[in-house]
Design a protein around this nucleic acid. Structure first.
Lengths: 360, 360
DNA sequence: TCACCCTTTGAAAACACTTTCATAACAGTA
DNA sequence: TACTGTTATGAAAGTGTTTTCAAAGGGTGA
């Protein structure tokens, strides 16, 4: 009752293993119609399924795609808690499975051992999220495997990248607040790292402020982590130390949720007392109360496109590229502001002349 | 510049491949200290990493664990959007990686092809979430692979199960509302399927009602899907057709969010006008405004335990079981109500005598 | 010095496939 | 009938490991 092998099938159909292999791989031109049918019958009756390990060994490809998710050092746990990742993975998985590829999901801290994994498991490609040390990317290049980077600003034409214009996003959000009469605008954000998305959004924030001839106050940017908790902490800090701030740009929706929560606890109402704009438009942003005004990117689509790009690199023609050969190295997805309930026009009310520089 | 193989290492160290294999697999007793060192040096200098495909082929094990996530038929997309899954996967991944296992994540619809995958890829085990057709489980049993079922009520001692007492959870939630003076209690839920968690929670709901000598009204249970959207729809329906309902039990936090949202849109305040209790305590429940009162289960722990159980089944002693050999086939995790801001005692206020049977 | 035993080593088979290449079979043509 | 060309088939080599088993090596005791 052992699992049948290709050899068993060959014997039962009284053909060579080569013939069986041919039909398994759809090389029908190598096999006559009659034997084809015979072999197929045996396969079915024996319940034969090919062994990927063996196949992988000889073909040197695994039909496995690696997905890399950054992992906090503290918790040694995936950042999956951030719904952003869930959404993008959902997009990736859907596409990949359609083409017979499977997902190898790994949390990665500093890149370290992932390179070995890539080699050991013969991965056919990888989709990488997050920012890692220089050496990681160098290692990636050495292993000659198709790589798609999501939200990375690594300036190396070796890699294929899917992203958004984060600088513009930051600008958009900030400008949106400025246009609504806000002049003291805080920014709450994760770590501003060299060439990371956050840095770009920060740049956009500053550009909007300067362009409008407002004063850029470094004290108004609260940098820590892309987390709910940071939002909470920053919210309390703003409430107690910066009453003049009337609007904040959170560089992630999760941060915005934390902000609003702590504002609420402090008795500051959103948007009546302070406006908040987020970034991402994760699934739950529209569920939040009040629904979050935010800079929307199509997260799931990002995943789908990343998967398509990878497939086409592997040679599976997964790209629904309509002929136009744009520069495939870099795909920038559009951004838009979705207006919901957390931003209000300042000066809309009555008492603002009285307490011009603050919420009171 | 090809990737070095074990054979290359052997040659460079002028030993046989067997010796190299021994040190790779930590069989140090087979290799003298001197050669051990020499081999290790060569491995390092050649940057050698073993090929899992080959190893897998001969050892007939892959160090790969399958994770099965149910998938909606419509969207052919993972249900990852539900943060519940993200959290549990996060728990699983953390544990498994520590032991050198990797995660193969798949969305599965009706079970169909997953059985083949299990065989093809030589998976060492699988963790299965969701409910599938009978044949799927039959197939699972035939392939003799360690399987851990999460939240399943399949009554078959072949499988190892991790879950909670859903009936009790439903009872707990409903009783909590009853104890706070509510008598007309709605239940909003996903599909009540044979032997599913939802059915159990439903049973608990009914038990609590009967036990308190209240009238069980089938019209008060809104069955559709475990989704935010269903919550929204049900909320509107309750607002327009069932003004006498003063509290609802949502069998998933996601549903509760939808409910509260639609109540808000209808001008019904939570908890002042209607109380809502959820189930799960997903990460975002405490972030919600108002923070959601809910039946808490430790989702991440569920994942960790599932992983541990699987590891110990595989023989990796991943179980931190402190000696007691309870019935490992079934692990029931505790449940507790976390009181936050969405349930209020009825009759607490003043006007309730006036409009005794309704919100007004 | 020899026999014996224990440790260390290496040759080779096995794992389940793919693919190349040679051959067999066959029909068609001169 | 012999030759050519085409197609269908199968033998065998190769893929990178693990593991068994036999042999070599080295020490010990007599």
């Amino acid at each position: 009752m052992k699992r049948p092998t290709l050899k068993d099938v060959a014997k039962a159909a009284s053909v060579s293993t080569a013939a069986v292999s041919y039909v398994l791989n759809g090389k029908h031109e190598k096999v006559s119609g009659e034997t084809l049918e015979r072999i197929n019958n045996v396969i079915k009756s024996l319940n034969y399924v090919p062994d990927y390990s063996a196949r992988s060994l000889v073909k040197n490809q695994s039909r496995l795609i690696g997905i890399v998710i950054p992992q906090t050092e503290k918790h040694a746990q995936l950042i999956l808690e951030n719904p952003w990742y869930s959404e993008i993975i959902s997009g990736i998985e859907g596409k990949l499975r359609k083409y017979g590829y499977h997902l190898l999901l790994s949390g990665v801290n500093q890149g370290e051992s992932y390179l070995d994994l890539l080699i050991q498991r013969n991965l056919d490609g990888a989709i990488i999220m997050g920012i890692y040390p220089e050496e990681f990317y160098e290692g990636l290049k050495k292993i000659k495997i198709p790589i798609v980077l999501i939200d990375s600003y690594i300036n190396d034409s070796y890699f294929y990248r899917i992203g958004i214009d984060d600088e513009y996003g930051g600008y958009l959000a900030t400008k949106y607040l400025i246009d609504r009469g806000h002049t003291n605008i805080g920014m709450i954000t994760g770590a501003i790292r060299r060439e990371g998305v956050v840095e770009k959004r920060f740049l956009g924030y500053k550009r909007a402020i300067r362009e409008s001839n407002l004063f850029y106050n470094p004290d108004y940017v609260f940098e820590d982590s892309m987390s709910y908790d940071h939002g909470v902490a920053a919210g309390h800090r703003i409430a107690s130390a910066f009453p003049e701030i009337t609007a904040v740009f959170a560089t992630a929706d999760m941060i915005a949720f934390g902000l609003i929560k702590s504002f609420t606890d402090e008795g500051i109402r959103t948007p009546d007392d302070i406006s908040v704009i987020g970034f991402d438009d994760v699934f739950m942003s529209r569920m939040f109360l009040p629904p979050l005004t935010t800079v929307r990117q199509d997260i799931k689509k990002k995943g789908v496109i990343a998967a398509e790009r990878l497939l086409s690199l592997i040679g599976e023609a997964g790209d629904d590229d309509n002929g136009q050969s744009e520069d495939l190295r870099e795909t920038i997805l559009p951004l838009e502001i979705v207006e919901r309930g957390t931003v209000i026009r300042r000066g809309n009310g009555q008492s603002l002349t009285e307490t011009e520089h603050g919420r009171g």
